[in-house]
Computed example of a mutant assay.
Amino acid sequence: IQSASDTVLRRMRRKYTMAEFGERITRLKEVLPDCAITSDVIVGFPGETEEEFMETFNFINDHKFSELHVFPYSKRTGTPAAMMDDQVEESIKEERVARLISLSDQLAKEYASKYEGELLEIIPEEFSEEAGGRLVGYTDNYLRVAIEGDESMIGQLVRVKITKAGYPMNDGQFVRIMQTLKDAAV
């Protein structure tokens, strides 16, 4: 979304409004209720006020995004935005980035918690030290799950039970191998 403030979007020369974007999210969630909505967000675009920032914050919270990638605006030489008045101070951008990252973490945990106790499928990709040496893979709705297992499970379609939801990692329990990716391609 870049920003959820129509006035900031106009300054960014974006051709959509947040009403249009909100309608699309609502329709998408009606058709795919479990979908994960993520977005890149830029904070501190020239002239961004606290009120405009809060429009973004509230839109993201109201629409229950699953995760955000938050970036502070940075000047790019030769761009129209770099020449705009009202550049936002670095300290304000840093504070806003921190607030959105905190919101993102909260929303990601809320999203993951809907799946605690559920059976999902992952394709284990690797052993991860971050996950205590366990196998790690992603579900089709982008939940990162760690399970106990061996190297033979890497690249297999594996059913797991989410035993503890969290962010950025969910704990899972191996249930069974569904099929190998090789078999799925045939």
Rank of each mutant, 00 (worst) to 15 (best):
R10I: 11
V88T: 07
M178V: 15
G137Q: 02
S104Q: 05
I92A: 12
D6Y: 02
E94N: 14
V136M: 08
Y138E: 12
S74C: 08
N58V: 03
D62I: 07
I37Y: 06
L119W: 14
L68N: 05
L28P: 02
L100Y: 03
K114N: 14
F174T: 08
I42V: 12
F127Y: 14
L143S: 06
H63A: 00
K164G: 09
T56A: 04
E20D: 09
T139F: 04
Y115P: 03
E126P: 03
R14L: 00
M12W: 08
F59L: 15
G149P: 10
I177C: 13
R134Y: 06
T38D: 09
P33A: 03
V160A: 05
E148D: 15
E125M: 11
Y111I: 07
F71E: 04
R159S: 14
L68E: 01
T49L: 03
H69M: 07
Y138W: 13
A98L: 12
Q87V: 04
E125V: 06
Y167F: 15
V160S: 03
A81G: 07
I123S: 10
Q106N: 13
G47Q: 06
Y111T: 06
K164W: 08
V43S: 00
A185I: 12
E67T: 07
R96Y: 00
I1H: 12
V41Q: 03
P124Q: 11
Y142S: 11
T17R: 06
D105N: 15
S104E: 03
E126M: 13
L9H: 01
F71T: 04
F59N: 02
I92T: 14
I101S: 06
G44S: 05
A36Q: 00
H63R: 10
G149H: 11
Y73R: 00
R13G: 01
K182L: 13
Y115F: 15
P46L: 08
V70M: 03
R27P: 00
E89M: 12
K75D: 14
E23D: 14
P168W: 08
E50Q: 11
T38F: 09
E90F: 11
K29Y: 04
K29V: 01
S66H: 07
A112F: 05
T49H: 03
L68C: 03
T56N: 00
V88Q: 03
V136E: 01
E20L: 10
V41R: 01
S5N: 04
V175S: 09
M178Q: 15
V70C: 01
A81Q: 07
G78I: 07
G117S: 08
D62H: 13
E52R: 03
T180K: 12
R76D: 07
E95G: 12
A165E: 01
F65E: 00
A4W: 03
P72N: 14
K64S: 10
A36N: 09
R159T: 15
I1N: 08
V186S: 11
I1C: 09
F59M: 10
A81F: 03
K93Y: 01
Y111V: 06
L157M: 13
Q179S: 15
G172W: 05
A146Y: 06
A4I: 04
A19R: 15
E20T: 08
E118W: 10
L107H: 00
I177F: 07
I25E: 04
Y73N: 02
E126H: 12
